[in-house]
Design a protein around this nucleic acid. Structure first.
Lengths: 162, 162
DNA sequence: CACAATTCAATTGCCCACAACTAAATGGCG
DNA sequence: CGCCATTTAGTTGTGGGCAATTGAATTGTG
């Protein structure tokens, strides 16, 4: 696999391409976040907080663990974020009675009500992208493939450390 | 433009689509960053620091201002990051003699030398994505279009605040 | 039952992103 | 020349992301 490079010539070019792709993804992600920041300011929540609310609006309630799996975020990110959502009155956090290790995150009435106002968000974002729905879906699919491949590669890497 | 919705029925669907696309982009960006984190650990730099080094390897030296324009980062991000690169011995920062407001960022010998080791990075990342070069280029182009559209929409928004 | 391994959330510490503000230097303009 | 708007970095404060660690609860196993 890692014999010395099959083609050594374009290694310089790869560094340039790398500069372009990693910059592009990073910049796109930040531009996207920035667009949401503007739109979400009315709702008083941030972009990552919005992601959490989207899951809760769909699921109603679920433990921190499940939330982390859905969003690929760990407790180091979620714990303080959920505290802020709780301080804002949008969710409650309660230790599960059945398993005291687990913390259930539940929407409050206020949190549920916020969904109505959030319905206007996607349209504003979509229009800001100048993409149509099919293009967005296609981009989403590509990104999911990319993420899955990167995750798998990360697992392989981890497996090598034995 | 913003008359009441041309089609009200699928507003719920939009919220679902939004959940998917914003999650996908966010997750892809983090998966990408994570892949770089693994590869860059050998070089002792982080992903945003690598972005800075890529620009410096191409340009040799340039003021903080120009660096920020290239990377779309402001001084609040760059100042501490550049201090860390300086502490690591990879760059020097010097007030410009001609314009004392400006700070020139220059590669040190060590910083220049690091490029040799960085040449191995892109190939490892590309192989982790399981995409071929054309697919990567295409994705990069789409992301650039997306970013440009979002930036323009942000400008329009700002223009409305008069 | 008792003890060890595992699971789960929280905390700590470091880095990045960005808004808002500060301070210093520059360039124009009366 | 003297003053003011602009430009440029830096600082501060808030929020996120993540690795590493902690502590409590649970599960598994002898």
């Amino acid at each position: 696999m890692t014999t010395s490079a099959p083609q050594d010539a374009p290694q310089e070019d790869y560094l340039l391409l790398d500069q372009q792709i990693c910059f592009s993804l990073h910049a796109a992600s930040r531009a996207f976040t920035s667009a949401y920041r503007v739109v979400l300011k009315d709702l008083g929540i941030t972009y990552p907080q919005y992601l959490v609310m989207l899951v809760l609006w769909e699921q109603g309630e679920l433990p921190v663990k499940k939330l982390g799996e859905r969003l690929r975020l760990d407790s180091g990110t979620l714990s303080p974020l959920l505290k802020r959502l709780e301080a804002a009155g949008l969710v409650r956090r309660e230790r599960s009675a059945r398993d005291e290790r687990s913390v259930e995150v539940r929407l409050t009435g206020e949190g549920t009500a916020l969904r109505e106002r959030a319905l206007a968000v996607p349209r504003r974002i979509v229009s800001a992208t100048s993409f149509d729905v099919d293009e967005i879906r296609d981009l989403r699919d590509r990104l999911n493939v990319l993420t899955a491949a990167l995750d798998e590669a990360a697992l392989d890497e981890a497996a090598l450390e034995d």
